[in-house]
Amino acid sequence: MAGMDQEFADFVDGRFTALQRFGYLLTGEWHLAEDLVQTALTKVWFHRNSLRSPNALESYTRTAMVNTSTQWWRRKWKGETPTEVMPEPASESQYGVVDDRDLLLRALATLPKRVRATLVLRYFEDLPEAEIAQIMGCSVGTVKSNISRGLAKLREHRLVSAISAPADKEVRP
């Protein structure tokens, strides 16, 4: 393994954990996230020669992850059952943080796959809308729509009900 293969291997080993985190927010399960990252990287490896620049590798991998997770959901993955009404959260307790995490994960699971991916790219990866549009292969207008829709949905859940509506209008260029 030499040259470009070594570069690719370095990229995989260096960025795996970050990509795994992104995958977890897309899928909601760590082992699925690992599978998703490996699947996406395999696809990227076959197309690595057509990349515009080596810097595009990570962006290209994220695109492959979003598309793959959407395909999985369409074709086979029905393990999660999104529900419109969230269960009552537990009262104040020492497990409050864990409960909140679980609720957020469930709230994310109720979102359409591409809306969920858009929110994660915007609020976890902190990417500007133009870059998200590139990764998602859609227009900036669609990104804005998905962000607004996703936030509106999250606001319906108790965990995120603290979100004030006017603040949600904040959209970075």
């Binding site: 690992e34 995490r101 609020y123 976890f124 902190d126 995120v160 979100i163 004030s164």
Partner: peptide, 19 residues
């Protein structure tokens, strides 16, 4: 809002298992 959600998402993935 953005900080709130960013913080929560960060908490969710704070402890990834080793590959």
């Amino acid at each position: 809002m953005s900080d709130y959600l960013r913080e929560r998402l960060g908490e969710l993935v704070a402890d990834p298992p080793p590959p």
